[in-house]
């Protein structure tokens, strides 16, 4: 009997998993996006392929990091998730909706919220709580529910005490958390963060990444983090590396960071311990590939001593 009920649970889980594989959060097929530059007469001067044959799938509940140097196309890809840009060729589905479908545009934007790089340029209101309420207001949510959502999202990012403050008096990390709360209040299934930490100091960076991880784990929100800081991606379920508009690497953080030289060729860094372990291995120490943290490093070195 024990076994039987166990089986049922397993079976149900599997069923969910099966359903999820059909309903991916984001799925793109051979996505191409071209920037067309025109001269003064309107003739085509040049065409730049910002995205070149990008096919990705992101499952619901995942924490996915996209890495790439400036100009690699990662921000262009992010803007597609929110239908701020639409593919020149190929398709992108967000929660099963084609981003080219103009009737679905507001649904898509509600499903996949977006946080941008510059904290100052995405806060609209002069009081924290009013800014968080801006999204729900646009969605036509009833007043009472707006207040509930605002409170819940501000608590989720740990900014509830600051609800009456002016955003101008907050630190960069706090401003980004307010921006994240503003998205959370729209009850999205997925948050796309386009280099949210690029303009922050180390403290602010930690704050934002911690908040995002918590939302992913506690609220089950799918997270798509775009960054060029390696420390921020070691907790991701999946890492995608982009270069020149193409996806060049894909895998778990460990798989990706095992390839130090390849990453460097794409103008990317690795965390210092990863590089140290890699160099020690080259110098003859028997260390495993893809060491991500100090703890792993210490363990591996200890193993060499025996």
């Amino acid at each position: 009997m024990y076994c039987k009920s166990d089986f049922r649970v397993l079976g149900r889980k599997k069923q969910f998993a099966g359903k999820d594989t059909i309903e991916k959060m984001v799925r793109s097929e051979n996505l191409i996006f071209e920037y067309i530059r025109r001269d003064e007469e309107g003739n085509v001067e040049s065409i730049t392929k910002a995205l070149d044959d990008v096919s990705i799938t992101i499952s619901k509940g995942d924490f996915v990091a996209i890495l790439g140097h400036n100009g690699s196309g990662k921000s262009t890809l992010a803007k597609h998730m929110n239908a701020l840009l639409v593919p020149t060729e190929g398709t992108l589905f967000v929660d099963g909706m084609d981003t080219k479908d103009e009737e679905k545009i507001w649904e898509i934007r509600q499903a996949a919220g977006m946080v941008f790089q510059n904290p100052d340029n995405q806060i609209i209101a002069t009081v924290v709580e009013e800014d968080v309420g801006f999204g729900p207001e646009n969605l036509g949510v009833p007043t009472k529910e707006i207040w509930e959502r605002v409170e819940k999202s501000l608590r989720a990012v740990g900014m509830y005490e600051y609800r009456k403050h002016s955003p101008n008096k907050l630190s960069g990390g706090q401003k980004q958390r307010v921006a994240i709360a503003g998205i959370m209040a729209m009850k999205p299934q997925c948050i796309v963060l386009d280099e949210p930490t690029a303009m922050l100091d180390p403290n602010g960076r930690k704050e934002v990444v911690r908040t995002v991880r918590e939302l992913n784990q506690k609220e089950g929100v799918t997270v798509l983090l775009i960054t060029h800081y390696m420390e921020e991606v070691i907790y991701a379920d999946k890492v995608i590396v982009m270069d020149d508009g193409k996806i060049v690497m894909q895998g778990t953080p460990r798989e990706i960071f095992a390839q130090v030289e390849k990453l460097k060729s794409y103008r990317m860094d690795v965390p210092q311990v990863t590089e140290l372990a890699y160099k020690l291995k080259q110098a003859g120490m028997p260390l495993p590939d893809g060491i991500l943290s100090i703890e792993e490093f210490v363990e591996a070195v200890q193993a060499c001593a025996k």
């Binding site: 934007r109 919220g113 510059n118 100052d120 340029n121 995405q122 009833p142």
Partner: peptide
């Protein structure tokens, strides 16, 4: 530049003019 960024951020948060908007306050 800020205006461009802000417009994009507002659009991403489903701003589409006053129609169909509710009020928090």
């Amino acid at each position: 530049r800020r205006a461009g960024d802000l417009a994009m951020a507002m659009e991403a948060r489903c701003y589409h003019g006053g129609k169909g908007r509710t009020k928090m306050k």
